[in-house]
Design a protein around this nucleic acid. Structure first.
Length: 261
DNA sequence: ATGGCTAAGGCACTTAGA
């Protein structure tokens, strides 16, 4: 079962690229972030024509997450619990039956948090605390769980081409990285790091200053797996070639292959 | 100290991203 995450950076601007990648990869479940669209104007027909079911949690102008899947989910939940006043669309999760197993997949768009010293960074850290609490509840179910998304966290220095350049950035702050580590202390496994310790495995390259051409990237898009899911992990990939396509997102898809059923 | 680009809203430029 192929499960992917991709910050698409605007679904309407990226529909052709998305359809081409869906045809090429034929993933079973796709977690999208930054759809930058309300639910009503999400281009669902084009995606449904390829045989995908579409669940959105959109917002006007920015943010927004979605789940695409070959099979219709048994159930879907929107919003990360823990703050009823939070009206930013950054979380959606679904459950699919695969044989006798139940697989839960979340699409997460974690707040960027810049600039430091502002409410935005506080919001990022509070959001991460809420994610920790929610992940702990889900892990207690002891079943297949994939928390996929744009975490906006550079976990370690080897996850950036120029780590020093990120020292003053919310993505590489000790507090952000500490919360990331606490998620793993709960039992979640970083799928990419379960398969390789290689440096230079990036998922984002800025549009500016020839970052792609210089491979000046960072790894911020992640799939965290429950122990049950991790025991079925048979492959991890970063589809970095998509970054070289016409009109690309600045993020690329990251994908895991789970051997279920 | 310095975001060089891109998307969206809405129709000139601002906000947001990472």
């Amino acid at each position: 079962m192929l499960i992917a995450t991709w910050n698409i950076n605007g679904i309407k601007a990226r529909i052709d690229v998305l359809l081409a990648w869906l045809r090429e990869r034929a993933p079973d479940v796709v977690a999208l972030q930054e759809i930058k669209s309300v639910d009503e104007t999400f281009p669902r027909a084009d995606i449904e024509a390829l045989g995908y079911h579409v669940e959105t949690h959109g917002q006007k102008g920015f943010n927004g997450v979605a789940l695409l899947s070959k099979a219709k989910p048994d159930s879907v939940e929107r919003r990360l619990p823990g703050d009823d006043a939070d009206d930013q669309s950054r979380y959606i999760e679904g459950v699919w039956s695969v044989g006798a197993r139940r697989v839960r997949v979340a699409s997460i768009y974690l707040p960027n948090g810049n600039p430091l010293g502002t409410e935005k960074f506080d919001y990022k850290l509070r959001w991460m605390q809420r994610l920790e609490a929610h992940a702990a509840l889900r892990l207690a179910e002891e079943s297949d769980l994939v928390l996929a998304g744009d975490y906006n966290v550079i976990p370690e220095p080897e996850d950036a081409k120029h780590p020093d350049a990120w020292l003053g950035d919310a993505l590489f702050q000790l507090e952000s990285r500490a919360s990331w580590r606490r998620l793993q202390a709960l039992g979640l496994i970083d799928a990419l790091r379960a398969s390789t310790d290689a440096a230079g495995t990036y998922t984002f390259w800025d549009y500016q200053a020839g970052a792609w051409q210089k491979n000046n990237g960072i790894r911020i898009d992640h799939l965290l797996l429950s122990p049950e899911a991790a025991s079925r992990l048979v492959g991890v990939g970063i589809d970095s070639h998509v970054r070289a396509w016409e009109k690309p997102s600045d993020h690329v898809p990251v994908i895991v292959d789970l051997s279920l059923s």
